[in-house]
Design a protein around this nucleic acid. Structure first.
Ligand code: ZN
Ligand code: ZN
Ligand code: ZN
Ligand code: ZN
Lengths: 133, 133
DNA sequence: GGCTAGTTGAGAATGATTGTCAATCCCGGT
DNA sequence: ACCGGGATTGACAATCATTCTCAACTAGCC
Protein backbone atom coordinates (compact mmCIF):
# COMPACT_ATOMS: atom_id res chain seq x y z
CA UNK A 1 0.00 0.00 0.00
CA UNK A 2 2.34 2.72 1.22
CA UNK A 3 5.54 3.04 -0.81
CA UNK A 4 8.97 3.01 0.80
CA UNK A 5 8.73 5.26 3.81
CA UNK A 6 11.25 8.08 4.01
CA UNK A 7 14.21 7.38 6.28
CA UNK A 8 13.90 8.84 9.79
CA UNK A 9 17.18 9.59 11.50
CA UNK A 10 17.64 9.22 15.21
CA UNK A 11 18.24 12.67 16.61
CA UNK A 12 18.21 14.09 20.11
CA UNK A 13 15.09 16.08 19.22
CA UNK A 14 13.17 13.14 17.86
CA UNK A 15 14.02 11.05 20.91
CA UNK A 16 13.02 13.86 23.25
CA UNK A 17 9.60 14.20 21.63
CA UNK A 18 9.06 10.46 21.78
CA UNK A 19 10.11 10.41 25.44
CA UNK A 20 7.48 13.01 26.30
CA UNK A 21 4.81 11.18 24.33
CA UNK A 22 5.63 7.92 26.09
CA UNK A 23 5.28 9.55 29.49
CA UNK A 24 1.94 11.10 28.64
CA UNK A 25 -1.30 9.17 28.92
CA UNK A 26 -3.40 12.11 27.73
CA UNK A 27 -4.01 13.75 24.40
CA UNK A 28 -1.89 16.90 24.26
CA UNK A 29 -1.36 19.75 21.82
CA UNK A 30 1.91 20.38 20.01
CA UNK A 31 2.34 23.56 22.02
CA UNK A 32 1.88 21.69 25.31
CA UNK A 33 4.41 19.08 24.26
CA UNK A 34 6.82 21.84 23.35
CA UNK A 35 6.33 23.46 26.76
CA UNK A 36 6.92 20.15 28.48
CA UNK A 37 10.18 19.69 26.56
CA UNK A 38 11.38 23.10 27.67
CA UNK A 39 10.39 22.32 31.26
CA UNK A 40 12.47 19.16 31.12
CA UNK A 41 15.45 21.19 30.01
CA UNK A 42 15.49 19.19 26.79
CA UNK A 43 14.35 22.02 24.57
CA UNK A 44 13.36 21.43 20.96
CA UNK A 45 12.38 24.05 18.41
CA UNK A 46 8.65 24.47 17.95
CA UNK A 47 8.91 23.84 14.21
CA UNK A 48 10.70 20.60 14.93
CA UNK A 49 8.01 19.52 17.36
CA UNK A 50 5.38 20.02 14.67
CA UNK A 51 7.52 18.29 12.05
CA UNK A 52 8.25 15.34 14.28
CA UNK A 53 4.64 14.90 15.28
CA UNK A 54 3.55 15.02 11.64
CA UNK A 55 6.08 12.34 10.76
CA UNK A 56 4.91 10.15 13.64
CA UNK A 57 1.33 10.54 12.51
CA UNK A 58 2.28 9.69 8.93
CA UNK A 59 3.99 6.54 10.21
CA UNK A 60 0.90 5.68 12.28
CA UNK A 61 2.89 5.87 15.48
CA UNK A 62 0.77 8.64 16.94
CA UNK A 63 -2.98 9.29 16.96
CA UNK A 64 -4.51 12.71 16.45
CA UNK A 65 -7.74 14.22 17.57
CA UNK A 66 -9.36 17.54 16.73
CA UNK A 67 -10.59 19.46 19.73
CA UNK A 68 -13.81 21.50 19.43
CA UNK A 69 -11.79 24.66 18.85
CA UNK A 70 -9.93 23.04 15.98
CA UNK A 71 -6.62 22.54 17.77
CA UNK A 72 -4.94 19.24 17.06
CA UNK A 73 -4.11 16.91 19.95
CA UNK A 74 -1.58 14.08 19.84
CA UNK A 75 -1.22 10.85 21.76
CA UNK A 76 0.84 7.70 21.51
CA UNK A 77 -1.71 4.91 21.70
CA UNK A 78 -1.10 1.32 22.69
CA UNK A 79 -3.47 -0.34 20.28
CA UNK A 80 -1.88 -1.15 16.95
CA UNK A 81 -5.10 -1.33 15.01
CA UNK A 82 -7.82 1.19 14.17
CA UNK A 83 -9.69 2.33 17.27
CA UNK A 84 -11.45 5.30 18.81
CA UNK A 85 -11.24 7.31 22.03
CA UNK A 86 -13.20 8.21 25.10
CA UNK A 87 -11.62 11.47 26.22
CA UNK A 88 -12.06 13.59 29.34
CA UNK A 89 -12.72 17.18 28.35
CA UNK A 90 -10.95 18.68 31.35
CA UNK A 91 -7.88 16.50 31.93
CA UNK A 92 -7.50 14.73 28.59
CA UNK A 93 -7.48 11.26 30.17
CA UNK A 94 -8.14 8.75 27.42
CA UNK A 95 -9.61 5.29 27.08
CA UNK A 96 -9.02 3.47 23.81
CA UNK A 97 -12.19 1.83 22.59
CA UNK A 98 -13.24 -0.49 19.79
CA UNK A 99 -16.56 -0.36 18.01
CA UNK A 100 -16.70 -3.14 15.43
CA UNK A 101 -20.41 -2.57 14.95
CA UNK A 102 -19.83 1.09 14.08
CA UNK A 103 -17.14 0.23 11.57
CA UNK A 104 -19.36 -2.06 9.53
CA UNK A 105 -22.36 0.22 9.93
CA UNK A 106 -20.43 3.20 8.58
CA UNK A 107 -19.01 1.29 5.64
CA UNK A 108 -22.32 -0.24 4.68
CA UNK A 109 -24.10 3.08 4.95
CA UNK A 110 -21.54 4.79 2.73
CA UNK A 111 -21.71 2.00 0.17
CA UNK A 112 -25.50 2.19 0.07
CA UNK A 113 -25.23 5.85 -0.88
CA UNK A 114 -22.62 5.16 -3.54
CA UNK A 115 -19.69 6.58 -1.61
CA UNK A 116 -16.13 5.54 -2.27
CA UNK A 117 -12.88 5.70 -0.30
CA UNK A 118 -14.70 5.84 3.01
CA UNK A 119 -13.22 6.91 6.30
CA UNK A 120 -14.74 8.16 9.50
CA UNK A 121 -14.07 10.03 12.70
CA UNK A 122 -15.63 9.07 15.99
CA UNK A 123 -14.70 10.41 19.39
CA UNK A 124 -16.54 10.36 22.66
CA UNK A 125 -16.05 13.23 25.08
CA UNK A 126 -17.04 13.48 28.73
CA UNK A 127 -15.82 14.18 32.24
CA UNK A 128 -13.93 11.42 34.01
CA UNK A 129 -14.42 10.46 37.66
CA UNK A 130 -11.34 12.29 38.88
CA UNK A 131 -12.63 15.53 37.40
CA UNK A 132 -15.97 15.56 39.24
CA UNK A 133 -16.30 18.41 41.72
CA UNK B 1 -32.45 23.72 29.97
CA UNK B 2 -31.39 26.79 28.02
CA UNK B 3 -32.39 30.10 29.59
CA UNK B 4 -34.17 32.81 27.63
CA UNK B 5 -32.39 33.06 24.31
CA UNK B 6 -31.01 36.46 23.43
CA UNK B 7 -33.13 38.50 21.04
CA UNK B 8 -32.11 38.27 17.37
CA UNK B 9 -33.12 41.17 15.23
CA UNK B 10 -34.06 40.77 11.61
CA UNK B 11 -31.41 42.51 9.57
CA UNK B 12 -30.53 42.47 5.89
CA UNK B 13 -27.27 40.71 6.76
CA UNK B 14 -28.88 37.98 8.81
CA UNK B 15 -31.43 37.31 6.08
CA UNK B 16 -28.73 37.22 3.43
CA UNK B 17 -26.72 34.62 5.32
CA UNK B 18 -29.80 32.50 5.89
CA UNK B 19 -30.70 32.78 2.21
CA UNK B 20 -27.31 31.41 1.19
CA UNK B 21 -27.52 28.60 3.72
CA UNK B 22 -30.95 27.61 2.48
CA UNK B 23 -29.72 27.41 -1.11
CA UNK B 24 -26.73 25.27 -0.17
CA UNK B 25 -26.98 21.52 0.24
CA UNK B 26 -23.31 21.16 1.12
CA UNK B 27 -21.23 21.91 4.15
CA UNK B 28 -19.40 25.17 3.52
CA UNK B 29 -16.86 27.27 5.37
CA UNK B 30 -17.59 30.76 6.68
CA UNK B 31 -15.18 32.16 4.11
CA UNK B 32 -16.97 30.38 1.27
CA UNK B 33 -20.32 31.66 2.48
CA UNK B 34 -18.88 35.16 2.61
CA UNK B 35 -17.57 34.83 -0.94
CA UNK B 36 -20.97 33.62 -2.13
CA UNK B 37 -22.62 36.63 -0.50
CA UNK B 38 -20.27 38.97 -2.31
CA UNK B 39 -20.89 37.16 -5.59
CA UNK B 40 -24.62 37.66 -5.12
CA UNK B 41 -24.03 41.36 -4.72
CA UNK B 42 -25.49 41.07 -1.23
CA UNK B 43 -22.24 41.67 0.58
CA UNK B 44 -21.94 41.15 4.32
CA UNK B 45 -18.89 41.86 6.46
CA UNK B 46 -16.82 38.82 7.26
CA UNK B 47 -17.09 39.46 10.99
CA UNK B 48 -20.83 39.51 10.66
CA UNK B 49 -20.83 36.24 8.77
CA UNK B 50 -18.92 34.62 11.60
CA UNK B 51 -21.14 36.22 14.22
CA UNK B 52 -24.33 35.20 12.47
CA UNK B 53 -23.16 31.64 11.97
CA UNK B 54 -22.18 31.38 15.62
CA UNK B 55 -25.60 32.61 16.67
CA UNK B 56 -27.32 30.13 14.37
CA UNK B 57 -25.23 27.31 15.79
CA UNK B 58 -26.03 28.42 19.34
CA UNK B 59 -29.72 28.35 18.44
CA UNK B 60 -29.31 24.87 16.91
CA UNK B 61 -30.39 26.15 13.51
CA UNK B 62 -27.13 25.20 11.83
CA UNK B 63 -24.85 22.15 12.09
CA UNK B 64 -21.09 22.37 12.16
CA UNK B 65 -18.40 19.99 11.14
CA UNK B 66 -14.63 20.14 11.59
CA UNK B 67 -12.68 19.39 8.45
CA UNK B 68 -9.38 17.50 8.73
CA UNK B 69 -7.44 20.76 8.54
CA UNK B 70 -9.42 22.20 11.45
CA UNK B 71 -11.58 24.59 9.44
CA UNK B 72 -15.21 24.74 10.52
CA UNK B 73 -17.92 23.96 7.98
CA UNK B 74 -21.56 24.99 8.30
CA UNK B 75 -24.80 23.57 6.93
CA UNK B 76 -28.46 24.07 7.51
CA UNK B 77 -29.79 20.56 8.07
CA UNK B 78 -33.35 19.37 7.63
CA UNK B 79 -33.47 16.96 10.54
CA UNK B 80 -34.56 18.55 13.78
CA UNK B 81 -33.03 15.96 16.04
CA UNK B 82 -29.48 14.79 16.70
CA UNK B 83 -27.95 13.13 13.65
CA UNK B 84 -24.68 12.60 11.82
CA UNK B 85 -23.35 13.13 8.30
CA UNK B 86 -21.98 11.26 5.34
CA UNK B 87 -19.94 13.88 3.51
CA UNK B 88 -18.20 13.88 0.15
CA UNK B 89 -14.63 15.05 0.56
CA UNK B 90 -14.43 16.72 -2.82
CA UNK B 91 -17.83 18.38 -3.35
CA UNK B 92 -19.21 18.52 0.18
CA UNK B 93 -22.46 16.77 -0.74
CA UNK B 94 -24.06 15.58 2.46
CA UNK B 95 -26.43 12.82 3.55
CA UNK B 96 -27.93 13.11 7.00
CA UNK B 97 -27.81 9.79 8.80
CA UNK B 98 -29.09 8.33 12.03
CA UNK B 99 -27.28 5.77 14.12
CA UNK B 100 -29.40 4.87 17.13
CA UNK B 101 -27.14 1.93 17.91
CA UNK B 102 -24.09 4.16 18.05
CA UNK B 103 -25.81 6.61 20.37
CA UNK B 104 -26.60 4.00 23.00
CA UNK B 105 -23.25 2.28 22.53
CA UNK B 106 -21.35 5.51 23.14
CA UNK B 107 -23.39 6.44 26.20
CA UNK B 108 -23.13 3.00 27.76
CA UNK B 109 -19.40 2.85 27.12
CA UNK B 110 -18.83 6.24 28.72
CA UNK B 111 -20.96 5.31 31.72
CA UNK B 112 -19.04 2.06 32.20
CA UNK B 113 -15.85 4.07 32.46
CA UNK B 114 -17.35 6.52 34.92
CA UNK B 115 -17.64 9.39 32.46
CA UNK B 116 -20.12 12.19 32.91
CA UNK B 117 -21.68 14.80 30.59
CA UNK B 118 -21.07 12.68 27.55
CA UNK B 119 -21.15 13.89 23.97
CA UNK B 120 -19.69 12.54 20.77
CA UNK B 121 -18.67 13.41 17.26
CA UNK B 122 -19.16 11.03 14.36
CA UNK B 123 -18.76 11.87 10.71
CA UNK B 124 -18.32 9.65 7.70
CA UNK B 125 -16.25 10.92 4.78
CA UNK B 126 -15.98 9.56 1.28
CA UNK B 127 -16.28 10.33 -2.41
CA UNK B 128 -19.76 10.48 -3.87
CA UNK B 129 -20.78 9.01 -7.22
CA UNK B 130 -20.69 12.33 -9.04
CA UNK B 131 -17.09 12.85 -8.00
CA UNK B 132 -15.74 9.60 -9.48
CA UNK B 133 -13.29 10.14 -12.31
C1' DG C 1 -40.18 61.47 14.77
C1' DG C 2 -36.82 60.20 18.42
C1' DC C 3 -34.65 56.48 21.94
C1' DT C 4 -31.97 52.85 22.91
C1' DA C 5 -29.97 48.67 22.84
C1' DG C 6 -28.68 45.23 19.45
C1' DT C 7 -25.93 45.10 15.13
C1' DT C 8 -22.51 46.09 11.72
C1' DG C 9 -17.83 46.24 9.48
C1' DA C 10 -13.13 47.82 8.54
C1' DG C 11 -9.17 46.89 10.43
C1' DA C 12 -6.21 45.20 14.13
C1' DA C 13 -5.12 41.34 16.95
C1' DT C 14 -4.77 36.50 18.11
C1' DG C 15 -2.94 32.04 17.80
C1' DA C 16 -2.05 27.64 15.72
C1' DT C 17 0.36 25.91 12.05
C1' DT C 18 3.49 26.08 8.03
C1' DG C 19 7.32 27.91 5.15
C1' DT C 20 12.26 29.59 4.64
C1' DC C 21 16.93 28.56 4.45
C1' DA C 22 21.57 28.72 6.24
C1' DA C 23 23.89 26.13 9.73
C1' DT C 24 24.34 21.68 11.67
C1' DC C 25 24.17 16.76 12.26
C1' DC C 26 23.54 11.65 11.23
C1' DC C 27 25.37 7.77 9.01
C1' DG C 28 27.10 4.78 5.47
C1' DG C 29 31.19 4.32 2.98
C1' DT C 30 36.25 4.48 3.07
C1' DA D 1 38.66 8.22 12.69
C1' DC D 2 37.58 10.92 8.31
C1' DC D 3 34.45 12.34 4.65
C1' DG D 4 30.47 13.87 2.02
C1' DG D 5 25.90 14.48 1.04
C1' DG D 6 21.44 14.29 2.19
C1' DA D 7 18.39 14.73 6.25
C1' DT D 8 17.40 17.67 10.18
C1' DT D 9 17.18 21.72 12.89
C1' DG D 10 15.50 26.30 14.58
C1' DA D 11 15.01 31.29 14.69
C1' DC D 12 12.04 33.89 12.29
C1' DA D 13 8.69 35.22 8.90
C1' DA D 14 4.45 34.16 6.73
C1' DT D 15 -0.18 32.23 6.36
C1' DC D 16 -4.79 31.94 7.50
C1' DA D 17 -9.01 31.14 10.05
C1' DT D 18 -11.19 33.25 13.63
C1' DT D 19 -11.95 36.81 17.20
C1' DC D 20 -11.70 41.50 19.01
C1' DT D 21 -12.42 46.61 18.93
C1' DC D 22 -15.30 50.34 18.78
C1' DA D 23 -17.39 54.08 16.41
C1' DA D 24 -21.17 54.40 13.22
C1' DC D 25 -25.60 52.45 12.09
C1' DT D 26 -30.43 50.64 12.60
C1' DA D 27 -34.48 47.63 13.97
C1' DG D 28 -38.11 47.69 17.03
C1' DC D 29 -40.85 50.28 20.09
C1' DC D 30 -43.15 54.53 22.28
ZN1 ZN E 1 -5.63 6.05 20.07
ZN1 ZN F 1 -13.60 3.39 13.38
ZN1 ZN G 1 -26.80 17.87 10.05
ZN1 ZN H 1 -24.83 10.78 17.65
Amino acid sequence: MSGTEPVRRTTRQRSAVLAVLDDLEQFRSAQEIHTELVRRGDSVGLSTVYRTLSALVADDDVDTLLRDDGETLYRRCHGETHHHHLVCRSCGATVEVDGPAVETWADRLAAEHGFDEVSHTLEIFGRCEKCRV
